[in-house]
């Protein structure tokens, strides 16, 4: 279970999170939706400790996320970044098995390579991709490699930051299906941020609408269309009319 309690974060005068509360039950897939610049990525990075909240508490399985063994804490997480964030200087297989090549989870290089190729297959990439460099791959392939890296160490919790941004609808569908399958198969807790409604319907067990620095509505994905919440309704319809200002 991940719990955010009254989390605040500001950058100068820009108060991004203004008391965000959210519960993500263990083994479920939560998708946070909201417009650009509403703090979705900030919330996610606060959980990981990449950004320190100004105030509020974040708990993972009842323990304060800001204290304790940082390496052990991060070892429980996998993350797919918006632009994949692959390391340019390393071939694909070393990107995927990065964690297995160094640090406390270090394994022999041959074994790490096998794992990498296995995970690449899992995301629909052939083994010949393993020796290429990230710059030689298309955007969709980079996202898949990023996904393979996120699941390589079989984490309990996986974060997906805008997993389909910049991809065509077909590739978006492939990535969405992969995420859903992998999360279900691994029994992982997932937190995804997106403004792609097809991703929401494909990935989510639960949905949370973030606007104005707080969660405006949260509930099961099945109830999203009939939520009655004006923010959610406007977001789903993509209308310029409603409580969310079109010009921000």
């Amino acid at each position: 279970m991940i719990r955010l309690e009254n989390v605040h974060k500001a950058f100068g005068d820009n108060r991004v999170l203004q008391g965000m509360n959210l519960d993500i039950p263990k083994g479920t897939s939560m998708v946070i939706i909201g417009g650009s610049g509403t703090g979705k990525s900030v919330a996610l990075k606060c959980v990981l400790g990449l950004i320190k909240p100004d105030s509020g508490m974040i708990y993972v399985d009842g323990k304060d996320a800001a204290t304790g063994d940082r390496d052990a804490f991060l070892a429980r997480f996998g993350m797919l970044f918006q632009g994949a964030a692959l390391f340019d200087s390393l071939p694909v297989w070393q990107n995927v098995s990065f964690r297995l090549l160094r640090g406390p989870l270090k394994r022999p290089a041959e074994y790490a390579r096998e794992i990498a190729i296995d995970k690449l297959r899992r995301v629909g990439l052939k083994s010949d991709v393993a020796d290429r460099f990230p710059s030689e791959l298309s955007g969709g392939m980079q996202k898949r490699v990023g996904l393979a890296r996120a699941i390589a160490a079989e984490p309990e919790i996986i974060f997906f930051d805008e997993p389909t941004t910049g991809l065509d609808p077909i590739m978006s569908g492939v990535i969405n299906d992969l995420i859903r399958e992998i999360v279900t198969e691994m029994g992982a807790t997932a937190m995804t941020i997106t403004h792609d409604m097809s991703s929401v319907r494909a990935i989510a067990d639960n949905v949370a609408m973030l606007h104005g620095g707080v969660i405006q509505w949260t509930g099961p994905v099945e109830q999203m269309d009939a939520s009655g919440d004006p923010y959610v309704e406007q977001f789903i319809s993509g209308s310029a009319e409603g409580p969310i200002e079109a010009v921000r």
Binding site: K45, L48, G49, L50, D71, L74, A75, F77, G78, M79, F81, Q82, G83, A85, L86, F87, D88, F98, R99, R102, G103, P104, L105, R149
Partner: peptide, 16 residues
Amino acid sequence: TMKVTEQIDALVTLST
């Protein structure tokens, strides 16, 4: 470039 493409954040999430 690593910073603006979130590779530094990725390093942290990979316990490095």
